[in-house]
Design a protein around this nucleic acid. Structure first.
Lengths: 237, 237
DNA sequence: CATTACATACCGACGGTCGGTACATACAAA
DNA sequence: TTTGTATGTACCGACCGTCGGTATGTAATG
């Protein structure tokens, strides 16, 4: 019995299933066999849609980049907002998205941001940076024109800030996993968040305290991680 | 016939050979078989020295971290230097090292900083950051005491700046490879270098222009890459 | 005689290939 | 309207070489 589906539908099914498995077990530790088993198709089907396993990863990364841009694009177009408001709104939206998908984000932090998924992360980060940088650069240019930001080179600064953000989040997530061993890390993490925000403010030359890049929901994740220290069972390998 | 060598000597031989192969072909594309063939020993020998292939990678990363620290440690101890002088000297030393090993650095830029070596890079970056951050934090604390730097949290700031540096270098190296296709990238790269330095200055709250983090030898690499555009034969895969 | 420093044979799992099949659609002949 | 035929697409599953890793053996060393 053959289950034949529409091309795009089947492809999305592969993408979604693969992403789920990557988040559960990591990219390297998820075999093509595991993916086709989860989808319920054959190996031939997989290679009918993707030329290699890495090709699937690329398409996943591209999709993530598009989603990241779609989430923040409307903000950039808004003529009512100042540059600083736009920036705050952009981060508020992504933070809100993270808050709504809290469980996913915690899983993501645990698995996505581990060394074993370095390739997955590198690809996705790059795509996201490339997709978001031009918009951010435009905001910086606006801020420069408004006189609220002092950025000589918006494009380069945008790329730098996004990469910095990715690095910080990466290190952040890594340390989040170490809280179990050393609860004092939680305080360091909260400090790191402040340092990050202030660093961005300084790079952009905006007034101290004018950027709201992290919200309470994000901070609460850190505190939650600290509290679950003893109550949660170990399910690690 | 058994070729028996001193433990450390043999181990270093593995490490050196593996590093060479990783730089040539990448981490994932270098098999354990390729390593033992290059060293001229058996598989048993490899697993006598390393528990896994990733373990070798870790030791490689640790060695890189130690070397990075050894290069800059004397500077930190020097009681004669101010915080800003120390920072400039630290970067001057690493830049001098890069200038001396120019060919290696270019190879490293081309291969090490490609997505396929994401794991290798992530590991080494992390180790280097961990190894260097405490020293840098001490310099920041000194600068804070001297009144030349305004860093509220030296440890977190040190980690952030080092990770920023790694990100910048990574993106930098990636773009270096694209110069062949688009020579205008060279100008963007030189701009990015300035943006990076100024960003660090702002993060630390030091006077603009007081940090010399990149020198002319580094800039010359960019110009050299631009010039070889037509004269060099293509050896890419 | 125990430990070190390897060698060799082998394993299961992996990513990827390949020859083939089931089915939808199109179109023309009956 | 039915039926045969041609063609492309979605998919199957056996198979291949290579991979990281293991089990076991053995010669030298101390």
């Amino acid at each position: 019995m053959h289950i034949v589906k529409d091309y795009d539908e089947r492809k999305a099914e592969f993408l979604d299933t693969a992403m789920g498995l990557f988040l559960e077990r990591g990219y390297d530790d998820t075999s093509v066999n595991a993916i086709i088993e989860a989808v319920g198709v054959s190996k031939g089907a997989f290679y009918h849609y993707f030329s290699t396993k890495e090709d699937l990863l690329d398409e996943l990364a591209a999709r993530a980049g598009e989603q990241a841009m779609a989430l923040t694009a409307p903000v950039v177009e808004d003529p009512e907002l100042s540059a600083i408001e736009k920036m705050n709104e952009m981060f508020a939206r992504t933070n809100a998205f993270k808050a709504q998908n809290r469980e996913l984000m915690i899983t993501l932090a645990r698995v996505f941001y581990s060394d074993r998924n370095a390739l997955l992360r590198a690809r996705m980060t790059r795509r996201s940076v490339e997709a978001t940088a031009p918009a951010l650069a435009r905001i910086f240019a606006q801020g420069k024109a408004e006189g609220t930001m002092s950025v000589a080179h918006p494009e380069q600064t945008a790329a730098l800030i996004l990469e910095l953000g990715a690095s910080v989040v990466s290190g952040f997530a890594r340390k989040l996993g170490e809280i179990d061993r050393d609860p004092t890390i939680a305080d360091e993490l909260l400090l790191s968040m402040d340092v990050y925000v202030e660093s961005v403010e300084r790079i952009l030359g905006v007034a101290s305290g004018s950027l709201k890049l992290v919200d309470d929901s994000l901070r609460s994740v850190v505190r939650a991680a600290t509290q679950t220290k003893g109550t949660k069972e170990k399910k690690d390998d």
